[in-house]
Design a binder for these strands. Structure first.
Length: 922
RNA sequence: GGGCGCGUAGCUCAGCGGAAGAGCACCUCCUUGACAUGGAGGGGGUCACAGGUUCGAUCCCUGUCGCGCCCACCA
């Protein structure tokens, strides 16, 4: 006996354990020999993270695909695993240390700290995996990987060394995005632009050789800046070469206030006459654009900050040699106003050393104001780069870092998408991909962190780098190079987390070894991910995959939307609008959550998730459960060898036909990644077709005595239920698997998860047509009943009905009586006096209700129908009256319109007749 | 500044060249033996606006107005 109610919380865990215990999700099992492979690699969640709504959506969609393909007989590998998430994880552990007032990572030292992180990974690493299981993810957990496990680390090492030797990884000194809080470089992608309200300061820089006088503009030049504190590092003032205002100043010098450094006024197209004063201060060490301008004019690069963006007592000065190479070194500060021909560097003015950049800003503005060097201060809004993790303002900072020549690697990656080897779904994301890939910048891959893959580079005493697989190898290279045993020190830095993620599609399959899995499952079939990591991850997997495997990593890239809260805001912890998927699973069951996400996953639009919607799909699960109970109560058992093609009963043929249509549409939708269409179609079938109509239609049969008809109906009910469970299983795996078990009257041949997907079913056109008529008739009668508030059973008279209709009515009498609450059905030449008359397919169905109905109301109802018929006729006539339409529109469209006209005319005639009759009765 | 997308029923959204759809909400009726987490019925939309293409436009094109996102930009 099936339980009265379905309790997800009591069922889901048990079901999942059954799947795991039977190895249902194992790829390459004996049952799959000879099967076509289908593979998806999971976007690896952060190992110490927990499941959020984005994961829930992402993994639901992957699971739908995997379960669908598995049931279709493919050898499915859904490759799971987790990411070490360098910065994020290191931050979490450091915070923990701080909260527990334990020594920080620097006090602990690298080794002890890493031990601590591994411990945290061991403690919390299982959380996300268990949460994915609660969602129902059918990953092959026996193959779970971690980006820092032995094998993947080997892949990372191999890739780094190979790219280095090919010249595609190199070390370079240039400005990077420096995070002064985390004390590491980050890539362009980890920088977010935040609109910030600030000020624009207009500063007066006195011109050399003139006595500064605030009242006399010829004695100074005004530069506008949002970062006055960086003026300490200025090495030029740039104006546009065509700017008449400043033409005669080009070549002259200004004396940098506070510092006294003499710096030239240069002409450079970078300067925009429209912005600020048209003259711009050039601070090559602290601005990306200024860096370029500085290089063009061979200006020195003066770094004024330490790693935490606090003012240095003595500046670091780098000089430019050539335009590409930069050398850096400490120079002594020189005297203010040093001799012509040389640039002075200057000491930091008294009392500023160690000030943080924002404090320095205040101080410097104050000091400039004192000297009357601030012309004006305007409020100003601009976008300021922030670290995506630390949320502090990023400082452009001159350091040595490792880079990947992304431009080179991008070429084949662009071509592969151009040539359609890899397809984005929806397609418009390809444009985003191309735009980024085509102007891709060198990828900064070194991070000044500890948690991650340490860079396999060792340095000799002169700073020369030896990149090798092992320290011993590097040592022997170095010894050879120096001609003697030489002490090396290892590069302290680790690689960007995304470096190892970029290898995910092949590293998880065993690369660099030539494993059978790699051969079988690469390239993977599909990648399912959010648009926010197209650049971070998808693009880089394309680059690495093509470079090392010489083949695309995946055929399709399905890009899904973001899950937002019910009002459309991005979910974030700080806003407190995060909906926890686990809480929804607790409340409504994993199936309801999954179905909600799938049903809302329309391409190209974000998902605004509301709990109400989840509740609705919980109700859907309940509905399904009860339908199965009903079937069981009525002895509907799976019949061995049942063949839907051999059914004789119209109603059975009808539901089978509806199922066939649904099946076909669901398959089409899934082939196109239209998850919402697939889900909605199934929903409609289960609720509207199977429950609302089919089960209601068959009640009289099932409640009646034994007969061939009854047997066939019982078998069909069970058959469609079983097929329906299969169809629904990819979306609602738990309840369907449970029902598959509890409805079994004989042992099932397999778990539902491994059952065969339904075959293309038969279509009975005649039955379909006939039942459509019955439904229309019943609906029309019900409508009138409800509108007129008639509860009692009433007779039905078919007025002037055709032989065919009369025969149909006879065949369906029992059903019509029951579902429309009709007492008896008869035929007559015309509708009885005072009856309500319905037009169904051009024929009149009359309900003799004299005395019961409100004649005025009925008149009004008919008048309304008449208006509608007139409108329909008028519209069709307008079309058909248009010679252009008749001559130019396709023939079948014209035919269709003619038929519509006939139909509307007939309907109008019937309604008019009915009105006449009614008036006659009054 | 460059790009992408969205304005359709009260709300959330499908549809995207041939008679406007769903779910929720709302209103009316229904404790019938699967299910009140239910059943039956109903109201509600010049498909943002203006032009254009077409025999025909919610759908294609152009523009306008709103809204969102991505990329670039510390004057």
């Amino acid at each position: 006996m099936i339980d009265k109610t379905y309790q997800p919380s009591e069922v889901e865990g048990r079901i999942y354990r059954t799947w795991e215990a039977t190895g249902a999700f194992r790829a390459g099992g004996p049952a799959r020999v000879g099967a076509q492979p289908y593979s998806i690699v999971i976007p690896p969640p952060n190992v110490t993270g927990s499941l959020h709504m984005g994961h829930a959506l992402n993994n639901t969609l992957q699971d739908v695909l995997c379960r669908f393909e598995r049931m279709r007989g493919k050898d499915v590998l859904w490759q799971p695993g987790t990411d070490h998430a360098g910065i994020a994880t290191q931050m979490v552990v450091e915070r923990q240390l701080m909260e527990r007032q334990q020594p920080g990572r620097r006090e602990m030292g690298r080794e002890a700290f890493l031990k601590r992180v591994w411990k945290w990974k061991a403690e919390s690493g299982g959380t996300i995996v268990n949460q994915l299981k609660r969602l129902g993810a059918s990953c092959d957990w026996s193959r779970e990987r971690f980006t820092m496990d032995e094998g993947l680390s080997r892949a990372v090492l191999k890739v780094f060394v190979a790219l280095y030797r090919e010249g595609l990884i190199y070390k370079d000194k240039r400005l990077v995005n420096w995070d002064p809080k985390l004390l590491t470089a980050i890539s362009d992608l980890e920088v977010v632009q935040v609109e910030t309200k600030g000020h624009l300061w207009h500063l007066r820089y006195p011109i050399e050789g003139k006595t500064f006088n605030a009242e006399d503009p010829s004695t100074f030049i005004v530069v506008a800046t949002t970062r006055p504190e960086t003026m300490l590092g200025d090495t030029a003032v740039a104006v546009h070469p065509d700017d008449e205002r400043y033409k005669k100043l080009v070549g002259k010098n200004v004396i940098l206030p506070l510092v006294g450094r003499r710096i030239p006024i240069i002409a450079d197209e970078y300067s925009d006459p429209e912005k600020g004063s048209g003259a711009v201060k050039i601070t090559p060490a602290h601005d990306f654009n200024d860096f370029e301008v500085g290089k063009r004019h061979a200006r020195p690069i003066i770094n004024i900050f330490d790693q935490q963006a606090r003012l240095l007592p003595k500046f670091d000065v780098a000089t430019v040699t050539g335009t590409d190479k930069v050398q850096i070194g400490h120079l002594r500060a020189v005297e203010i106003n040093d001799p012509p021909g040389e640039v002075g560097y200057g000491d930091l003015p008294e009392g500023l050393a160690g000030l943080d950049r924002f404090a320095a800003r205040k101080q410097i503005v104050a000091r400039l104001e004192e000297k009357n060097l601030v012309e004006k201060t305007e409020p100003h809004t601009n976008v300021v780069p922030h670290g995506d993790r630390s949320n502090v303002v990023i400082e452009p900072f001159l350091t040595d870092q490792w880079y990947v020549n992304a431009k080179k690697l991008a070429e084949p990656a662009i071509a592969a998408v151009r040539e359609g080897k890899t397809n984005f779904v929806p397609k418009n994301w390809e444009k985003t991909y191309f735009e980024w890939m085509e102007k891709i910048q060198p990828w900064c891959i070194s991070r000044q962190l500890w948690w991650g893959h340490q860079i396999p580079a060792w340095y000799g005493p002169d700073g020369k780098a030896f990149v090798a697989f092992t320290e011993a190898e590097a040592q022997s290279d170095a010894d050879m190079h120096y001609g003697k045993k030489t002490a090396l020190t290892r590069d302290e830095d680790v690689l960007d987390t995304w470096f190892s993620s970029a290898l995910w599609p092949f590293s998880t399959l065993g690369w660099p070894d030539e494993t059978p899995e790699l051969k079988r499952f690469y390239p993977t079939s599909a990648l399912v991910t959010g648009f926010d990591i197209i650049f971070f991850w998808v693009a880089r997997m394309m680059m690495m995959g093509l470079h090392f495997m010489k083949e695309i990593p995946f055929h399709d890239v399905y890009i899904h939307a973001l899950v937002r809260d019910a009002s459309g805001a991005k979910m974030s912890k700080s806003k407190g609008n995060v909906i926890d998927p686990l809480a929804l699973i607790d409340d409504y069951g994993a199936d309801a959550l999954r179905f909600t996400l799938a049903a809302m996953a329309a391409q190209g639009r974000d998902i605004k998730l509301s709990t109400q919607r989840v509740e609705g799909y919980r109700n859907f699960a309940t509905k399904l459960w009860n339908a199965a109970r009903f079937a069981e109560m009525n002895g509907c058992a799976t019949a061995a060898g049942f063949d839907p093609k051999t059914t004789k009963e119209t109603i059975n043929q009808w539901i089978i036909t509806q199922f066939s249509n649904t099946l076909a549409q669901v398959e089409l939708a899934l082939a196109d990644y239209r998850f919402n269409d697939a889900a909605n179609r199934i929903y409609q079938f289960v609720w509207n077709f199977y429950c609302d109509w089919y089960l209601e239609f068959t009640k009289p049969v099932l409640l009646g005595g034994d007969s061939v008809t009854k047997q066939e109906t019982q078998a069909t009910t069970a058959y469609v239920r079983d097929e329906m469970l299969k169809l629904l299983h990819p979306f609602m795996p738990f309840i369907t698997e449970e029902l598959w078990q509890v409805t079994a009257t004989a042992p099932r041949q397999s778990l539902l998860a491994l059952a065969d997907w339904p075959d293309k079913g038969p279509v009975f056109a005649e039955a379909n047509e006939e039942v459509a008529w019955v439904i229309e008739l019943i609906t029309a009668i019900r409508s009138v009943r409800a509108e007129m508030n008639i509860t009692a059973a009433i007779p039905l008279v078919l007025a002037g009905a055709s032989k065919e209709t009369q025969a149909r009515a006879e065949r369906w009498a029992e059903f019509i009586k029951r579902l429309a609450r009709v007492s008896e059905i008869s035929s007559a030449a015309s509708a009885p006096q005072g009856s309500v008359q319905l037009v169904v397919r051009g024929e009149v169905a009359a309900l003799p209700l004299q005395g019961v109905i409100d004649l005025a109301a009925e008149c009004a109802r008919l008048a309304k129908e008449m208006t509608k018929a007139d409108a329909d006729i008028a519209r069709v006539d307008a079309k058909l009256g248009n010679a252009n339409f008749v001559s130019r529109a396709p023939e079948e469209v014209v035919e269709e319109e003619k038929e519509k006209r006939e139909e509307a005319l007939a309907r109008k005639a019937k309604v008019a007749e009915a009105l006449e009759r009614l008036k006659g009765a009054t």
